[in-house]
Amino acid sequence: MTTTILNTTPGQITRKQKLGPASIIAIGIILALLILPAFVQGYTLTSYRDVLLFALFALSLDLFWGKTGILSFGHATFFGLGAYGMAIMSIHFSIDPAIVSLVGLLAGVGMAALVALIVGYFILYGGVRGAYFTIVTLALTLIANHVAVGWPSVTGGDSGLIGVPPFSILGWSFADPISSYYLALIVLGACLLSSMWVMSGRLGLILTAIQDDEIKVQTLGYKTPLLLLMTFAASAAMAALAGGLYAAGNGFVAPDMIALLLSTEVIIWVAVGGSGTLVGAVIGTAIVWWLQQKISSINASAWPIVIGTFFILLVLVFPKGPAAFVLDKVKKLRRDKEDDR
């Protein structure tokens, strides 16, 4: 088993009867976030809501990258499909306002899952793994971005679409900051806990085994391309869910929601939290978002340089991820102290 962050291996062999530390952290975070609106209101709360939706997006990437070890460089495609699906359905079609949000969300999620299934079929069944998969998914984001920019009559081109109505369902509207915050939190919490539950079971084990040796797993009778394809499609659907809710929350879509930079940023959110942990994706998103606020307030154009430097450091300095890097240092310090005694 390799131990780098790019090939993370979940350690569990059997489903644990008791709650693991990751689940306790996850539940703790959700509980803490539940009482957050008591302390912050208005605009600040809406930006926290966006962080929750980005965390959901990061979780979707971790579900695939962290669990299968195959890096998708094109996850913004699916986030963007969710966002554009929501926007196009609610702006270009006159659908009953009671169900328009639901139709938009389903259209976006369905499109994303369909694209993931088609592209995934061609590459995963074609035996493409590892780095080639990454390049093809990178191209996928470029293709999607080309279409978003080059088809103005539908997508609004460079300026995007404005006027996406707030999420509502059968008369329940999530227009004000507090209700839209709770909507995002409930969706994130449900997705986080259910993915952790699924991945601690049989599927998680098989995916880990595929990471180690796909041919052996095939010999045991598992259809590995199918399992990878299903995980990819589920991950894409979750990314689109985040994108659709983001578009409804902010009222607009723009081509930078379906661009390569966003695909890149989500990799960093996952990597900072430690890929493969699922709950780490949520923590990583919050940390990076906070850092981005600090750095952008000093110099807005410095941010891409920070991201670029982070990628290089990630490989050359802390290949297991920053969290593991710090933990290792702490452990080493402790050992040194014990040795001194």
Partner: peptide, 13 residues
């Protein structure tokens, strides 16, 4: 994968 991450970082910078 290391190549992808490092050269992408380089590209952004």
């Amino acid at each position: 994968l290391h190549a992808i991450l490092v050269t992408w970082g380089l590209s952004l910078i």
